[in-house]
Simulated scan of single mutants.
Amino acid sequence: MDKKQENKKVFLEIVHQLRELIKHEGIQPGEKIPSERVLSERLNVGRSSVREALRSLELLGLIETRHGGGTFLSAVHSNQLVEILASFILQENKAVEDVHIVRRMHEKEAIRVICSEQSLRNLPVWESLFMKLELENEIVRDLLLRELIIASGNRLALKIWIQLVAYSSTPLKKVSTREEKPMLQMLIKSIQLGYEKEALNAYENWINFLRNSSS
Score class of each variant (00 low, 15 high):
residue 34 P to H: 07
residue 208 N to C: 07
residue 175 V to D: 09
residue 184 L to F: 05
residue 64 E to D: 13
residue 133 L to Q: 08
residue 163 Q to D: 15
residue 65 T to G: 11
residue 59 L to D: 14
residue 184 L to C: 12
residue 100 H to P: 00
residue 44 N to G: 12
residue 187 L to Y: 03
residue 105 M to D: 00
residue 17 Q to P: 00
residue 149 I to Y: 04
residue 164 L to Y: 06
residue 202 A to K: 01
residue 168 S to D: 15
residue 38 V to H: 10
residue 92 E to R: 15
residue 210 L to R: 15
residue 159 K to Y: 13
residue 148 L to P: 01
residue 214 S to P: 00
residue 141 R to S: 14
residue 157 A to K: 12
residue 180 E to Y: 02
residue 56 S to A: 14
residue 92 E to Q: 15
residue 167 Y to Q: 05
residue 29 P to D: 03
residue 30 G to D: 10
residue 9 K to I: 10
residue 63 I to E: 03
residue 215 S to Y: 07
residue 58 E to H: 01
residue 180 E to S: 03
residue 110 A to Q: 04
residue 157 A to M: 04
residue 152 S to K: 09
residue 27 I to C: 08
residue 96 V to L: 11
residue 180 E to T: 05
residue 153 G to S: 06
residue 109 E to S: 03
residue 75 A to M: 06
residue 89 I to E: 12
residue 157 A to Q: 09
residue 11 F to L: 09
residue 54 L to M: 12
residue 154 N to I: 02
residue 101 I to T: 04
residue 11 F to P: 05
residue 144 L to C: 02
residue 61 G to T: 10
residue 200 L to Y: 03
residue 86 A to R: 09
residue 149 I to F: 02
residue 133 L to M: 09
residue 145 L to A: 04
residue 22 I to K: 14
residue 60 L to Q: 10
residue 119 S to G: 03
residue 37 R to V: 09
residue 144 L to H: 11
residue 125 V to L: 02
residue 192 Q to S: 03
residue 83 E to A: 12
residue 110 A to K: 04
residue 172 L to D: 04
residue 102 V to C: 01
residue 143 L to N: 10
residue 189 K to E: 02
residue 107 E to W: 11
residue 210 L to I: 10
residue 46 G to F: 00
residue 115 C to K: 05
residue 116 S to Y: 00
residue 26 G to F: 13
residue 74 S to G: 14
residue 108 K to A: 04
residue 10 V to C: 04
residue 83 E to L: 15
residue 184 L to R: 12
residue 109 E to P: 00
residue 96 V to T: 15
residue 88 F to P: 00
residue 168 S to V: 13
residue 177 T to W: 02
residue 30 G to I: 10
residue 67 H to T: 11
residue 187 L to R: 10
residue 183 M to I: 13
residue 114 I to F: 04
residue 159 K to P: 09
residue 91 Q to V: 02
